[in-house]
Design a protein around this nucleic acid. Structure first.
Lengths: 248, 248
DNA sequence: GTCAAAATCAATCATTTTCATTCACAAAAA
DNA sequence: TTTTTGTGAATGAAAATGATTGATTTTGAC
């Protein structure tokens, strides 16, 4: 069987069932554990499925799908994300003009924000609502609302962002790699990240250590263009000056 | 069963029932007490559910206080609003470019919308989310988010709206009067209404009969600039050609 | 109210499962 | 040939699970 064929069969089965275990896929495709595991990594980086402990879950949030069949990124690596988020929130100072990217890790940042004398801009609907509820001045970028991630994307967003000059900003990412930089599966979301990135002075990537050495299809910035906030040392990145370890 | 799948199932069940006991979840998922207990901790830390002695509660029921406040505000003339909303939703046709203003009456319209082959624009965050969830293509105007009404206002919104040409649009209002036209309490929201109004072909005001003959501080359109959808005849307005009565 | 029984809880441990890494081998490509 | 790519097996590390312990909370009788 062709490798590509196997990949598409995995995607298909995961989407049909909502989930699939690695064991199950091994039998189904007559492949070794190693191969299945590699395939799951590939598909996860490509944004086709979401890899979870024991197998993979569907990313497809179409309406006919039951809620329990959809992987919730919010419930993975919670402790790590909170640690990173707390550190990140502490970087926001009075009079800052802050950009907060859509994403689950950035969502946790909001819980730790205390600086009310700053102005916030975001392309994530729920982030905006939370900030607004807290009494912060918050601006939403205009544009098309993606139902899957509740992020706002599109030409309108890019135009709105092109007029801003942020003093500080926070972005999530799917992949971090010394050569390919920061990458994400969705082309449109990458575009928004890139534009906001360009118009920001202090740039921070918030990502747990699992994102290192993973590469997704679309890049939005080079490795040395941002400071990375993560929770632990990653092998091969010990000498990087632009990595901050968030500690308790 | 995948661990993440189990977490999703717990969240779903807790949200559906409002609560669930640990015992009940053990049987339902064929997992040990330890596992269920761990899962409840994880979900609680993630903010998905609220852990209580003996099991867990849904976020919605525990924050019922706040929701009730909103519900109370909305509860005025709920039947009338539904009637009006149903009629309004029926006016949306294939290929329409629809503007839906922020507000409680317009929110009811969304529940009755069936036309998926139209493009929607709104300045209300929750309207956008609902439409998106239903599978509609929806655009949010950019700008500052007002925490009280969750409406987007400000210069950015006006600029974004100035570029659109809607085929049909729906607005709420606080006051309707033959002489002063349509009025609302908030200056900024009036500005948004005015701008969207100007760039729309078929304009509909959705308002229950109690709004007639009342006047709010800021006007956004003249009386004869829109068609009014309401639920019953109002004294003094019997001869108005631009009033539609929504009936069962 | 007090008290004791019952239920629930957090913490710890051993076991099992799953994971990432490495290596070796073979097939395909240069 | 040499290199590249894909695959499978083996290793130890990491994570998930279920049972056990004693602490804490709730319940109901008094």
């Amino acid at each position: 069987m062709l490798a590509k064929e196997r990949l598409s069969k995995i995607t298909q089965r995961v989407n049909e069932q909502g989930s699939a275990t690695a064991q199950e896929l091994m039998e189904y495709l007559n492949a070794s554990e190693s191969t299945i595991r590699r395939d799951l990594n590939t598909l996860d980086a490509a944004g086709e499925i979401i890899k979870v402990h024991g197998g993979a879950m569907s990313i497809n949030t179409s309406f006919k799908m039951r809620d329990d069949e959809i992987a919730d990124r919010r419930i993975t690596n919670i402790e790590e994300k909170k640690l990173i988020a707390q550190y990140a929130a502490g970087l926001i100072k009075k009079d800052d003009f802050v950009y907060i990217d859509a994403g689950t890790t950035t969502e946790f940042i909001i819980d730790y924000i205390t600086e009310k004398n700053a102005v916030y801009v975001t392309n994530a609907v729920n982030h905006a609502c939370s900030l607004s509820h807290m009494g912060c001045e918050v601006y939403l970028t205009g544009g098309r609302l993606k139902s899957a991630t509740e992020a706002i994307v599109g030409a309108e967003t890019l135009e709105a962002l092109s007029k801003y000059n942020f003093t500080i900003g926070f972005w999530g990412t799917n992949g971090i790699h010394k050569k390919t930089g920061f990458t994400t599966p969705d082309r449109e979301e990458a575009g928004v990240k890139r534009m906001s990135f360009m118009n920001c002075k202090k740039r921070y990537i918030v990502a747990d250590a699992s994102k290192f050495d993973s590469i997704s299809p679309v890049g939005f910035a080079d490795f040395d263009e941002a400071v990375i906030i993560t929770e632990k040392q990653v092998k091969g990145y010990e000498d990087c000056k632009n990595i901050i370890l968030a500690k308790k």
